[in-house]
Design a protein around this nucleic acid. Structure first.
Lengths: 212, 212
DNA sequence: AATTGTGAATTGATTCACAGCT
DNA sequence: AGCTGTGAATCAATTCACAATT
C-alpha cells in the first residue's frame, strides 16, 4: 500500500477519494469497451466495490456529472476523471535501482497501457542486461537526464540503506513524485510527494488477518 | 496501496494499526542491528514517520510494553510485534499467473528474508523459463498442491478478465489470503482476506498530487 | 525529569435520509 | 418513478492533555 502525503493538493479532494477515482475510471473503461453508454451510481459502485453514496459523494468533490433519474454517461464521466487525474498524456518515469525488484519492474511492461512509460533506469553499477529494452545509466547521468527530458516521477527500488541518499539526488534533479519500494520512510521537502509500496508488509498484513 | 477487509480479525486491532506495526517492526530491526537497546516513542515514531502519540496508541491495542521515564526495550517490543503478526515462521505462498508481472515477482527473491517463500507458481499455459528457480505448474495441479502443502496465501497476477474465475479456484482450494495485483475488485467469501496492490493506480495517484 | 498510557476532544470519512431534477 | 446531489448524523481515526510510573 502506499502512504503519507504532505501536500493536500489543489482544491481539497481527499487522498482516499483520489484513489477511488482511479478505480472508478477502470470500471468505466470496462463498461465502455462493453458498449455500455449509461450507468447508475448503484451499478458503478458495485463494480468498484464501494457503496453508491460514497461514489456520489466522491464525485461531488469536483463537479456534477449525473442526470437525475438516469445515471451517468460512461464516456463523459470517464473523460472527466482522467482529465482530473492527469492521465490523458503519457507520463515519462525513471526507475532508480536496478537490482532484484528494479529489473523485475523494468521487464514488466504493464505500465504503458496505463499512461506511464519508464524511459530510462539508473543504477550505481549499471549492468545492461542482454535482452533489456530500456537503457540503464550510471547515477551521475541522472540529473541531466531528468532535467533535459522534464521527468517528474521516479520509481525507487534501491536498498533501504541508500534510499534516503538517492532520494536527495532525485529531489535535487527535480523529481516531485516518488513511488518508493524501499522499506524506509523517506524525508522529502513539502512539495515532493511519496507513495510507498511494500510488498512484504502487504503479505505480513494478510498473514495477520488470516490467522483466525 | 491495498484495500477492503471483510473480517475485522481477532481482538479488534484496526487494519491501519496492523500496517503500522509492520513498519515499527522494521524500524526496530534496524535499531537492533545498530546495537541500540532502548528507544523512546518519540524516536521510534520519527523513524516510522508517525506521531509519538499514534505509536503509543497503536501499542495499547495489544498490551503495555514500555517503561515510563525510559522507553521501550527494542528487542522485546520487536519480538512482541512479530509474534502478533505471525511472522516468526516461514509462510509458504503460491503465485498464480506467470505473465509479465508474475514472472517479475517470481524472479524477485526479496520476500524470503521477510518470512515468505513462493514455493510454486501456476499458470494456464505454463512455460518453464530456462533460468527459473521456481517450478511452474498447470492450473489443474493447484488444488492438490495447496491442500498437500497447507498453503494459505496466494499472490494473484493474472489478467483482470480471468481474475474472478481464478480467485474462485483459489478459494475452493483453501486459500484464505490473497495479494491481488489484478485491476479488478474480487468477490470473496467472508473468511477470505484480499489485499489489493495496483501499481498503475499508485502512479496515477502521484501524478494527480504533483500537478500543482 | 523523563516518558508512557489513556480518556477526552478533535478531526476526518462514511453513511443516512431525503429534497430536487429529469 | 427513478436516480442524483447533499446537509446532517454517525462512525472511525488521530491528536491532545495530563495523570501515572520509573
Amino acid at each position: 500500500m502506499s502512504d503519507p502525503h504532505k501536500k493536500p493538493a489543489r482544491p481539497e479532494i481527499p487522498r482516499k477519494t483520489v484513489y477511488r477515482l482511479s478505480v472508478y475510471m477502470r470500471c468505466l473503461q470496462r463498461l465502455k469497451s462493453n458498449a455500455i453508454r449509461t450507468v447508475s451510481s448503484e451499478a458503478l459502485a458495485k463494480a468498484a466495490g464501494v457503496k453508491p453514496t460514497q461514489l456520489r459523494k466522491d464525485l461531488t468533490y469536483f463537479g456534477q456529472f449525473g442526470t437525475r433519474g438516469l445515471g451517468y454517461d460512461v464516456e463523459e464521466l470517464g473523460k472527466m476523471i482522467s482529465d482530473l487525474l492527469g492521465t490523458n498524456s503519457l507520463q515519462p518515469v525513471v526507475l532508480v535501482g536496478v537490482g532484484n525488484l528494479g529489473s523485475a519492474l523494468l521487464a514488466y511492461r504493464g505500465f504503458e497501457k496505463e499512461g506511464f512509460e519508464i524511459i530510462a533506469a539508473f543504477d550505481a553499477l549499471p549492468k545492461q542486461k542482454r535482452d533489456a529494452v530500456k537503457p540503464v545509466y550510471r547515477m551521475d547521468k541522472l540529473k541531466d537526464f531528468v532535467r533535459d527530458r522534464s521527468v517528474r516521477m521516479a520509481i525507487l527500488t534501491v536498498p533501504a540503506t541508500v534510499a534516503q541518499e538517492v532520494t536527495n539526488e532525485l529531489v535535487d534533479a527535480g523529481i516531485t513524485g516518488i513511488l518508493n519500494f524501499a522499506p524506509f520512510v523517506l524525508q522529502v521537502p513539502e512539495e515532493v510527494v511519496v507513495n510507498n509500496v511494500n510488498l512484504a508488509i502487504e503479505l505480513e498484513n494478510l498473514s495477520y488477518f488470516i490467522q483466525s
